[in-house]
Amino acid sequence: MEELSRAIVLAGSAIGAGLAMIAGLGPGIGEGFAAGKALEAIGRQPEAKSDITSTMILGIALSETTGIYSFIIALLLVMVNPLIGRL
């Protein structure tokens, strides 16, 4: 019985980790969008390239946060297995 409940919790953690990483979708789309807009801006104003690039990198880094959060959650679920302790 103990084994079975452990297995169920582990399976649930693994599935949860996989589901958490779906959040990687959002930052991917957002960052691609930001990079595309930055390219458009550079095309219009090539002389402002360095400013645009550094601002874009900062914005991309900020929007990446949600993806990183989901990665942390997935990491915790797989590596630390916090839910095992709840049995």
Binding site: A61, E64, T65, I68, Y69, F71, I72, L75
Partner: peptide, 10 residues
């Protein structure tokens, strides 16, 4: 902290 850690750890 999460951003820096998450990128390197991933």
């Amino acid at each position: 902290a999460f951003r820096h850690f998450g990128n390197i750890a991933s």
